[in-house]
């Protein structure tokens, strides 16, 4: 399986940086996410995770380091969390970590909503 590597650019700050590694199962999304046609950006990411589960079938860890995501992006992230929850329910080992700024209570509320909606445990960690 190929890795996914999308670098951030100051010209397009509305696209997050993405690093999905098929060897380690470590997936990271960082920066900000508020592009147009959000689902078109996230579709390859969702497909990659489905393929990883079906083909590699090993541990997977999702690290989210988004300081802002628009509501369309939250729908796409929720889709990913639901896929991971389904994998976990079938015996897959899954870890989800959400990095947050301690001065951003709105983001903590958002993560609580993701946990409630997807049913998956999300570990909160402060940004260093």
């Amino acid at each position: 399986m190929e890795n996914i590597l999308i670098k951030s650019s100051p010209d397009t700050p509305y696209f997050p940086e993405v690093n999905f590694n098929a060897s380690s199962g470590l997936c990271e999304i960082a920066g900000e996410s508020y592009m147009e046609e959000t689902y078109k950006f996230f579709l390859p990411l969702t497909s990659w995770i489905k393929d990883y589960i079906n083909i590699v079938n090993k541990n997977i860890e999702l690290n989210i380091k988004l300081i802002y995501l628009n509501t369309s992006s939250t729908k796409c992230i929720l889709d990913i969390l639901e896929i991971l929850k389904n994998y976990e329910d079938k015996g897959g080992k899954v870890k989800v970590v959400w990095y947050y700024d301690k001065e951003d209570p709105d983001m903590i509320d958002e993560v609580e909503d993701f946990e409630a909606e997807s049913g998956i445990k999300i570990e909160l960690r402060e940004f260093n």
């Binding site: 689902y39 509501t71 939250t74 729908k75 929720l78 909503d113 409630a116």
Partner: peptide, 22 residues
């Protein structure tokens, strides 16, 4: 509002429709 947001996001068809919770 929080409950409404959760319900709306879960029930949104997604894709080009987004989450419809802006």
């Amino acid at each position: 509002l929080r409950q409404l947001k959760r319900e709306q996001r879960l029930n949104s068809p997604g894709e080009k429709f987004g989450a419809r919770i802006g």
